[in-house]
């Protein structure tokens, strides 16, 4: 109970600070728009092509935009040495990880939920036909991105080129999650049900999230304290 309350305090702090400046979320959303726009030139957005590549397109946009939010997550603690005060407080590293992770999750999901209808309009896709399963994919995929991204945000926060470093390190680790999310999203956006062999991707997403969340919970203290 105490643990959860501390998690929520950290999450609320990050969200409130973000809402005051809207730095990360504005940049992230603008970036998602630009990438969506650019990708429309990469191929001819006819109905058929779009159906084939919608999953890949969406998750590339989500991952790029999400990275901007993740970069800010620990960078926010740098001015005034705020991280010291967080570490000094009687809050376990796992609670800090979950607190910051949840805040990132909410922000990235918000960007995704705005980007998705924009995608639908630009690319002329009726993406709502499998709405709830698609939301499940969004939640699972985004949590995978967030859990790894939050730890790696802490790893790279003191590096000179952290804006480049974070995606460089995070994207390769994310590949299995992205494969699953892309495949499932492509099916669901096309209005198909996920059946048979394809359900393996849901299992993959669940497994990926569980494995890397546990690993992050265990290793966060080490990352913060050395």
């Amino acid at each position: 109970m105490r643990f959860l309350r501390q998690v929520m305090v950290v999450t609320a702090k990050d969200l409130r600070a973000e809402m005051r400046t809207k730095e990360a979320i504005n940049a992230s959303f603008a970036f998602a728009l630009v990438v969506l726009l650019l990708l429309s030139f990469a191929f001819d957005p006819t109905e058929e092509t779009t159906r084939d590549i919608s999953g890949g397109l969406l998750w590339i946009v989500f991952t790029f935009a999400g990275t901007l939010v993740l970069n800010r997550s620990f960078a926010r603690e740098l001015p005034n040495d705020c991280l010291d005060a967080l570490i000094a407080a009687p809050v376990p590293g796992a609670a800090l990880f979950l607190g910051k992770g949840l805040a990132n999750f909410v922000l990235i999901l918000a960007v995704e939920l705005v980007a998705l209808p924009v995608f639908g309009i630009f690319y002329n896709v009726r993406w709502t036909r499998q709405f709830w399963p698609l939301m499940l994919v969004l939640v699972l995929g985004t949590w995978g991105l967030t859990s790894i991204g939050t730890v790696f945000s802490a790893l790279t926060v003191n590096i000179r080129l952290r804006e480049v470093m974070l995606p460089l390190l995070v994207y390769p680790v994310l590949i299995p999650m992205l494969l699953g999310a892309m495949r499932l999203s492509a099916l669901l956006v096309a209005g198909q049900e996920v059946t048979g062999d394809e359900t393996v991707w849901f299992k993959l997403l669940f497994g990926f999230d569980i494995i890397f969340t546990s690993l992050s919970l265990v290793l966060m203290d080490t990352v913060l304290l050395g």
């Binding site: 730890v151 299995p176 494969l179 699953g180 993959l204 497994g207 494995i211 890397f212 690993l215």
Partner: peptide
Amino acid sequence: FAAVYSIFAFTDVPIVYFSIRW
């Protein structure tokens, strides 16, 4: 930090392998 990263990378290897195989 490198050790933490190495643990993440190693954990990812089998997941990568199976996902790519699928």
